[in-house]
Design a protein around this nucleic acid. Structure first.
Lengths: 149, 149
DNA sequence: TAACATAAGTTGACTTTTTGAACTAATTAA
DNA sequence: TTAATTAGTTCAAAAAGTCAACTTATGTTA
């Protein structure tokens, strides 16, 4: 991460990657979003070196994706995801869906997204904003617009 | 990239990152998906070192995200995205949307997704698969299911 | 068609990052 | 109170990335 010249690119993707583009960061956020809160637990699950985990956690706190707070009923502290962090779920889950469909598959665990109250299956898709209706990915156009406003 | 122990994790996100988790790879794919085809052009836009670009391109060809083919009407060759690569669009565009909404904003270029025939605005959202209707992101549950089937 | 320019790499020295293992200071548990 | 756990820090070694120069093949121009 660190000294990337990403930010000079004036691109929202590059901007996002300047924050979560590191090898471990997405995996780290995955675990925090799934309820893992403590340093030791994160280190064990990820297998990342401890000093790097320290650095990444600090940076994510600085970037406003994590908050470092005391655990309730203990003087030990833990890391909690902020709304900015939770807003990454569509991106991370879209990646999970891609991984699922392009992995040899049949083998391996899956990530299932459901509508909480009904239990119905949910996916990350293109939606018309006007009426919230799914749009075929073949029928969309993507354009880079310079400096809107 | 390279010697990641990602694949040992049995997680579709980790699997996806073992292919596109590198600093430059997502940016590289962004450019290929937007129509950039040639080595020199990619190198100039990204500012990545040439030997690393060579390695990444080779790896992406091996992984089936890019195809290296001759340019029509020339003996020079170029890189084309495969369906596997294009299937990354929801993930990449979700990242772009996140970048847009959490950047200081007002400044910087935007990525606009539209329905091709109508020109209506489109976004990457959670959708009920049954009827293709958008679902509020607060109303979803995510679960890791071990070895379906 | 010679001569130059461009494209797509390759090579190797140097710098930056990451790892790994050991060490430290606080909490918590026995 | 002693031991174990947690959340780090430190530093040397290994891995990965950068930068600049070199090569080979293809195009372009005079």
């Amino acid at each position: 991460m660190t000294t990337r010249n990403y930010h000079r690119q004036d691109c929202p993707i590059a901007f996002a990657l300047s924050i979560v583009g590191d090898q471990w960061t997405v995996l780290l956020i995955r675990d925090v979003l799934s309820g893992v809160r403590r340093f030791e637990e994160l280190q064990k699950r990820l297998g990342v070196s401890r000093n790097l985990l320290t650095r990444r956690l600090k940076q994510l706190v600085t970037d406003g994706l994590l908050i470092r707070r005391q655990m309730p009923g203990s003087r030990r502290h833990a890391y909690w995801p902020t709304p900015k962090c939770m807003a990454l779920r569509p991106a991370i889950l879209a990646l999970a869906e891609w991984g699922q469909s392009w992995r040899g598959d049949a083998e391996g665990s899956r990530v299932e997204i459901t509508e909480t109250h009904s239990g119905k299956a949910v996916g990350v898709r293109f939606c018309r904003l006007e009426d919230g209706q799914e749009v075929n990915p073949e029928k969309i156009s993507v354009e880079r617009v310079a400096r809107s406003r």
